[in-house]
Amino acid sequence: MSSSHTPPPRILVFDSGVGGLSIVAEMRRHLPGVEMIFASDNAAFPYGTKGEAELCERIDIILHRFLQIAPADIVVVGCNTASTLALPRIRDQFDIPIIGVVPAIKPAAAASTNKVIGVLATPATVQRPYTQDLIEEFAQGCRVILQGSSELVHLAEAKLRGETIHPDRLKPILAPLFEASAGPQLDTLVLACTHFPLLKEELISACPYPVEWIDSGEAIARRAAYLLQQQQLTPAATTCGSGVALFSRQCPSIEQLKPALRNFGLETIQYS
């Protein structure tokens, strides 16, 4: 069969809400010749409130269901909570590469001039020992200020459904990161939840002064490109057409999401 008839590689980005769309955006930017599948387990949103055993069981079941509908060459678990808790189990269950998402503390420590870093995450990620382990391993010599927010997740979801989010709503969430007393200024801020880059413009406007913003999206796209190469899978020479958005539950709010999904190149909606 000629290469022109070889279907492009398929990458499935999985999340409970719509935060994984920030990963889809980076995939579109760095790997335009890949077919994208966005899979949202909206029936179980949010994952951050679930216990470890419950969450691992849920992800195992729902990923099998999604991959039956839309087989893929690579899966990206586009959720920090799911990645830190469930990756070992699901990697045992599937024979395709699975990429997890972790807070981008290592690149932030390298980027910071003042060695003062903010980490904006969900409360669950802030409290995980995994996050503290990343700080101890990669941010020695840095002051790391952690700030947890569930509200930002809901604001990102609201923005994608067409609501205008005024930066003033974000200022109280960011304020604790910048209220440190003496010492060097915070100069680097990690967006440690895939929902948060969806609000990047509003967050920049809400900041009291410019900072370096770092998230995991670009690194994940680079990792996906490497894994495709390892599997000898070649992205199409041209940008792939419309992708697919999968949801575990049909609900009215998905209608509100359709314009945003189209902006991410996801024209087709299916339900598992």
Rank of each mutant, 00 (worst) to 15 (best):
K171Q: 15
I145N: 02
H195E: 02
A219W: 00
A39S: 06
A175C: 08
K171S: 14
E35G: 07
V116L: 03
Q229S: 10
I254D: 02
I145L: 08
S22T: 12
I117M: 09
D60F: 09
D187P: 03
S205P: 00
R143N: 08
V244S: 04
Y226C: 01
A245S: 08
F38S: 02
R10Q: 08
A124M: 11
I37P: 05
T238C: 07
I105A: 07
I214A: 04
T239Y: 03
L198S: 07
D215A: 01
P167N: 11
A224G: 04
S181W: 11
I269F: 02
Q256N: 15
E157D: 14
S3H: 15
M27D: 00
P259A: 05
F178H: 07
F138K: 06
M36H: 04
I62L: 13
D133R: 06
A111T: 07
E157T: 10
S16D: 08
D15L: 04
G48R: 09
Q230H: 07
V34H: 03
A192P: 04
L152P: 02
V153M: 07
A219E: 06
P97H: 00
L134W: 07
S40E: 05
I61Y: 11
I145Y: 04
P252M: 07
N80E: 01
A44T: 09
I165T: 07
S2D: 15
A219S: 11
A158S: 14
H166V: 14
C79Q: 04
T81L: 06
G243V: 04
V102K: 04
G241H: 14
C193M: 12
N263V: 02
T164Y: 13
C79M: 03
Q270L: 10
R223M: 01
S248K: 00
F66L: 00
S150I: 13
A245T: 07
K50L: 14
I173G: 03
A82M: 06
Q270E: 14
D95C: 15
L191S: 02
Q270P: 02
T81M: 09
E57R: 05
L189H: 06
V101W: 00
F94E: 08
L257N: 06
S242F: 10
S4F: 15
I98N: 04
L266V: 05
H64Q: 15
A53P: 10
P71G: 05
T84Q: 07
Q132R: 09
I105M: 13
C79K: 00
A25E: 10
L146V: 05
R10I: 12
R249D: 03
G118D: 14
E201Y: 12
G183V: 15
F264R: 12
